[in-house]
C-alpha cells in the first residue's frame, strides 16, 4: 500500500536514514558473533522490524544507536543459544562473549582515517608472501584453496601464513584494537 500521509512519510524517511546509517555496521557487529553474513543480515533486519513496530515509543534519531547495538547483540545470543547445540563453534563464542560488555559508544569515536592508515601500515609491514596471501584472502575474498592454487602453495602453507599475518596485525594494532573494529565500517 502506498504511504500517503505526511506524518508517516516523515517517519519512513527518518527510519530509512537510521537504517542506511547503521545497517552495514550492525551487520558487521552481528557477524563477529555469529560468523554468517546472511544470518547477520537477517538479525539486523529483524531488529529494524522490531524498531518499526515500536516506533511510537522510540525516537528515530541517533539516540537509538545503543539500543540498536544492544538489540542486535541480544538476537545474536539468542541465535547462538540455539545453534550451540548443533555446532560447538557457538559454545566457544558464548563462553568468550557472554556477559561481555561491548562498548558501543566508542564505535563512533574511532578516527577512521587514522585507524585505516594503521591497518594499512600493519599490512604493509608483513613479509611479502604473507602480505600477498593476506590481501588475496581479505581483499579479494578468495578461499585458502584458491589462494594455494593460484600461488602454487599447499593449503597448509596458506593457513600458516594467514595466522601469522593475523598475529602480526594483532600486535601492531593492539592500541587500536580496543577501539571498535566496526570503525572500518564507518563511511567507507
Amino acid at each position: 500500500m502506498k504511504i500517503s500521509n505526511k506524518q508517516q512519510l516523515d517517519e519512513v524517511q527518518a527510519f530509512e536514514l537510521i537504517f542506511r546509517k547503521y545497517y552495514v555496521r550492525l551487520c558487521g557487529f552481528a557477524n563477529k558473533f555469529i560468523a554468517n553474513t546472511a544470518e547477520a543480515e537477517e538479525i539486523v533486519q529483524e531488529v529494524f522490524l522490531n524498531i518499526w513496530a515500536k516506533k511510537d515509543q522510540l525516537t528515530l534519531n541517533n539516540e537509538i544507536k545503543p539500543y540498536l547495538f544492544k538489540s542486535v547483540q541480544n538476537l545474536c545470543f539468542n541465535f547462538i543459544e540455539h545453534q550451540k547445540v548443533i555446532d560447538n563453534y557457538y559454545s566457544v563464542i558464548e563462553v568468550v562473549y557472554k556477559n561481555q560488555k561491548e562498548d558501543f559508544d566508542t564505535y563512533e569515536s574511532v578516527l577512521f582515517t587514522e585507524f585505516q592508515t594503521k591497518v594499512n601500515e600493519a599490512i604493509g609491514s608483513l613479509p611479502e608472501e604473507c602480505r600477498k596471501i593476506f590481501r588475496m584472502s581479505r581483499e579479494d575474498g578468495l578461499k585458502y584453496a584458491e589462494i594455494a592454487d593460484k600461488l602454487g602453495l599447499s593449503v597448509k602453507t596458506v593457513e600458516t601464513q594467514m595466522s601469522r599475518a593475523l598475529s602480526k596485525l594483532k600486535t601492531e594494532l593492539k592500541d587500536y584494537l580496543c577501539i571498535l573494529i566496526i570503525g572500518l565500517f564507518l563511511n567507507n
Binding site: C27, N31, T37, V96, R138, L166, S167, L177, I181, I182
Partner: peptide, 21 residues
C-alpha cells in the same frame, strides 16, 4: 578476543562489500 578482533577487523572490508544496503 584479541585474536578474534584482528581476524574480524581484517575481514570487515570484504564482508562489507558483500552487503547491499
Amino acid at each position: 578476543r584479541k585474536f578474534h578482533r584482528a581476524y574480524h577487523m581484517s575481514k570487515l572490508r570484504f564482508s562489507k562489500s558483500q552487503i547491499d544496503v
